[in-house]
Design a protein around this nucleic acid. Structure first.
Lengths: 238, 238
DNA sequence: AATTATGTGTTCGATTATAGAACACCGGTT
DNA sequence: AACCGGTGTTCTATAATCGAACACATAATT
């Protein structure tokens, strides 16, 4: 048995929690796993894992390769389609426009507890050394421009109420004043990022951002383009 | 109680199945639901739904808006990132290139039971009236070029073994001979599509496809470009 | 060729997690 | 004030779940 397997958060319903844990393990594993391996990683008896996996398979959240090994299934893509659907559809055309006019990768990230999760990304046309920020990737909300932009959408008071235990970065006040946030070398070495907040009615703020290695444009110009896009997105959400 | 709520497939573990069902309902609903509404749609007691939702919320698969209504959460995007990860990363650069050289939306779709699920899509730069094929969207495998391309990767015998109960389309043989599949007006009225199969080692074949309203290029040329991309993707998978 | 090792799939009784009724609460509305 | 329509919590009988034990397949080893 895997000693550090019991590290899953204790939730009201055990079976469901275990099933999700299985999916999380599979998503992190970069390769298909045998059922036995997965059971070990989950810290449960093999037959328990087996039953759970069959259920997940019934819903296409998991598929098995020729060797019987399991990996995440297409059903997950279908479910993910529903995540902030309005935001996604409103942002997509803006992202393509930004990516191509600025020649930078553009993306939308949302706030998830102490992390920032990338939702949609668009890479520019000439995708030579473009920095790709894959959808579904997470990084601490306290690092990088997108997280800072999200913070800047809230006052320090609102932040402490909504995110207890996560420090309110001092730069957030500056970002709030200027209307945009920047970062260098924070999430990935050598990569810079510029982001503006997107106010989501009835929900938590998100961020519209671009990443680049060396800026070809004036930061203020880039920020203005992002802000204009964010405004259009917000108006479509309202 | 919703009369047609019990239509979920009966799976070995009830709680997990219900949890997934909840996510499916949420993904289909185009708007946030109250817990009571969701419980009704699931056909379970409200307190059962409540407990399930809390578990899902613990894992960020679900978030609640200011009014307490629930909707799919960012954790799903993280999980979806793991779906055919190798295929996704191998295909992405090819998709951008195809989209921009052909000025068509390009995407990769995978086979899921009797459906075809779009995984990654890239829209061309000038996204005027571009046909967007959103990731996570599904359509019957028996309609459209991608599904036909997948069929064409298998012989009639292999198909009947792998997909019992789904008709083997006669056009598949033609597509197999030519190396690519086409469709017009099948999935969406007025939209045409051209696709080639991607052979995935150890797994089921996928499809590389483009959609367009009116073809600007010779179909054979388009097909050749797709085939070349597919070959590069396959070599990277092997 | 027999043997071990490592995997999947299935059955079944004990136990424990779960189901769902009942209740407390809270903010609008009539 | 009484009445909704909603959320959140507690509790016990019950049924779903757990996990040991078993049957079987396949590949590596002796």
């Amino acid at each position: 048995m895997n000693p550090n397997a019991a590290s899953a958060p204790a939730s009201p319903s055990q079976t469901l929690s275990r099933g999700i844990r299985a999916l999380e393990i599979l998503a992190e594993a970069r390769q298909p796993l045998t059922i036995a391996e997965l059971a070990d990683a989950m810290g449960v008896h093999r037959s328990v894992a087996y039953r759970i996996l069959r259920t997940l398979e019934d819903h296409s959240l998991l598929v098995r390769d020729d060797g019987g090994r399991v990996q995440p299934g297409p059903g997950l893509a279908v479910l993910a389609r529903g995540v902030s659907r309005n935001l996604q559809t409103a942002a997509l055309p803006e992202l393509t426009q930004l990516a191509n006019t600025l020649t930078m990768s553009a993306f939308v990230a949302v706030w998830d507890h102490e992390d920032c999760v990338t939702l949609v990304t668009v890479d520019p046309r000439h995708t030579g050394a473009a920095v790709v920020q894959h959808p579904g990737s997470r990084h601490p909300i306290n690092a990088g421009a997108p997280g800072l932009a999200i913070q800047s959408a809230l006052s320090e008071q609102e932040w402490k109420a909504a995110a207890p235990g996560i420090a309110y970065r001092p730069e957030a006040a500056d970002a709030r004043r200027r209307g945009y946030a920047t970062s260098h070398d924070e999430v990935i070495a050598g990569v810079s990022s510029l982001a503006v907040p997107i106010r989501v009615p009835g929900g938590r703020p998100a961020a519209l951002a671009v990443v680049y290695i060396r800026a070809a444009q004036d930061p203020e110009e880039v920020a203005a383009a992002l802000a204009a896009s964010a405004a259009r997105i917000e108006s479509q959400l309202g």
